[in-house]
Design a protein around this nucleic acid. Structure first.
Length: 271
DNA sequence: AGTGCGGCCTGTCCGC
DNA sequence: TGCGGACAGGCCGCAC
């Protein structure tokens, strides 16, 4: 699922429930996620208070008194607020229990997510240290994209999804942003002008902001902290619309594969 | 050094 | 109805 809007929706949703709460217990049912949940983690986090809840790229950072829990939702993960006494469903892999009736429950059928711990600066963690700029930060500009793609001949969509350049843009929002910017996703990255990258940076922010306002995109798995889906799917211009007509020019939406991923675009609007 | 792909998992859908 | 294969919102890590 989760690209930046879905992770940020989750962060905002769970924050009021967990901030300043003390962890009573971490219950692990399935430690075999993308990386194994460290076996010593339940002992490490018990009794610690959640002091902040941040996001870096698609990672959620739960700051505790003595360190940070790093959570990634992978492809199919979600975090819900609920009653830990309710019997877990299939694929409910861990509970962060705060009170007898309050827990965060992590659900992830494909198990591409993770739960990790660091007692150092989480931004220096190996998984986070190489991340590029946040799309809502002032450093995310057309110039940044332009400079980052000089001498790069792979399709521009590849670099939009390369999180060493900019974080948070996955397969859905890469297609959507390129549509709004009028750029053919197959175009070589170093054959896109700085002016067009400027437009693209704006499109990325617009798409992510609109998706966030709609509570994210739910194709199948994504639900927010209350278990409700996001509504941005109805607004998607190209993603998943192969053969349907472009909302701008009526041409049929096409799909191609770029870097093993499906890419959707309008052959008339995007050059 | 940049690029391309295999792999991690489960679930679903499609064609035979 | 069953079965194999492709595909799905991410992304690391290894070949070349």
């Amino acid at each position: 699922m989760p690209e930046l809007p879905e992770v940020e929706t989750t962060r905002r949703g769970i924050a009021p429930f967990v901030l300043d709460q003390t962890i009573a217990q971490l219950v692990v049912r399935q430690p075999a996620l993308r990386w194994p949940i460290p076996p010593e983690l339940p002992g490490l986090v018990r009794g610690q208070r959640v002091t902040a809840l941040e996001r870096r790229g698609k990672y959620l950072l739960l700051r505790l008194d003595a360190g940070t829990l790093i959570v990634h939702l992978g492809m199919s993960g979600s975090l819900r607020v609920g009653d830990p006494r309710q019997s877990p469903r299939k694929h409910d892999h861990f509970d962060l229990v705060f009170a007898p009736a309050l827990a965060l429950r992590f659900h992830d059928p494909r198990r591409f997510g993770c739960l990790l711990w660091t007692d150092g600066d989480p931004l220096q963690h190996p998984l986070l240290v190489g991340l590029g700029v946040e799309p809502f930060a002032p450093e995310f500009t057309g110039r940044h994209l332009y400079r980052g793609t000089r001498g790069r001949s792979a399709p521009v969509k590849i670099y939009l999804m390369d999180h060493t350049l900019v974080v948070g843009v996955g397969n859905i929002y890469a297609s959507e942003s390129l549509f709004r910017a009028g750029i053919d996703p197959r175009r070589a990255a170093d054959r896109v002008s700085e002016a067009r990258y400027e437009r693209l940076a704006g499109s990325v922010r617009e798409v992510l902001e609109a998706a966030l306002a709609a509570g994210g995109t739910t194709l199948r798995d994504f639900v927010n902290e209350r278990g409700s889906p996001g509504y941005f799917k109805q607004t998607l211009a190209v993603y998943g619309r192969t053969g349907e007509s472009c909302r701008v020019c009526n041409a049929p939406i096409r799909t191609v594969r770029t870097g093993q991923r499906s890419t959707f675009f309008c052959p008339r609007c995007q050059r």
